[in-house]
Design a protein around this nucleic acid. Structure first.
Lengths: 143, 143
DNA sequence: CTGTATCCGAACAGATACTG
DNA sequence: CAGTATCTGTTCGGATACAG
């Protein structure tokens, strides 16, 4: 019996492919991978380049990427300590996709924003108070 | 002041392109868009096809996609009511990318899972209790 | 410099009850 | 059928404080 080698199906709740999608989709993961596109980067460089990321989120994101085999972490025994991060082959295989994401975002940004204005404008019933509100995309300005 | 049209840069905190990336990256958005790839779908069909999504999340996701101009919502005045969702041109322009995401996830799933096993295996310092834990993808082995 | 540990409010997401 | 309204527990994520 042909081992039912069924393809991973992200539409099934328990399929691991869904978790992979989650990782890719992760806000910071995308930006970290993009930053590593040009070559190795130190922890501090990453923190500096990715505006608004907290130390906690950066570390957390890097650990996750490392765990998934997308980036490597290299510690140089020096004082002060220096840690370099780089994409693995697997990570690089993802690069095209992630670049495409960035590209799509920048080229279609205007359209999306226009659509939002339109949508918010003709809301006869003003913005619902509850569940109807779309995932909050306008984040409260950092105080 | 030249209203110099600088290219959207997702590395800048306030750039809208980051929010677009967030939308794309959203777990359910990806699955909804993929489901609509083959054509219109009714609300119930979406709910049925996307295993594990709650009514609330489905509605919320659809509203968000609609607001961003990626899907249309068509209400048919019938009893019982019938609502069809479909991708817009903008939504379809995203389809290749999203399909690529699914494709990458399914083809590299095994590698990612293997990497995780490896990573979790040789953790000399057992899983940190705090921030170090990657976005929880597997339940921490309860000791 | 490169993290780790905690505290804590905000946002998220599931379950449930109800409606046109 | 296709939602909306609430309630509530969980997770996220920023802000310190501290360490190797």
């Amino acid at each position: 019996m042909e081992s039912k080698q069924m393809r991973p199906d992200p539409f099934q709740r328990n399929c691991g492919s869904r978790q992979v999608i989650d990782r890719i989709g992760d806000r910071w993961s995308v930006l970290v991978v993009l930053t590593l596109a040009d070559g190795d980067r130190r922890y501090g460089e990453l923190a500096e380049h990715i505006d608004g990321i907290s130390q906690k989120m950066l570390t957390q994101t890097l650990r996750g990427l490392e765990r998934d085999g997308l980036v490597t972490r290299t510690v140089h025994a020096s004082v002060p300590p220096r840690v370099d991060y780089a994409l693995t082959d697997l990570g690089r295989s993802l690069l095209d996709l992630v670049s495409g994401l960035e590209s799509w975002a920048t080229t279609h940004l205007a359209e999306v924003q226009a659509a939002r204005v339109r949508y918010d404008a003709d809301l006869p019933h003003r913005a619902p108070t509850g569940t109807a509100r779309p995932t909050r995309l306008t984040r409260p300005a950092r105080r």
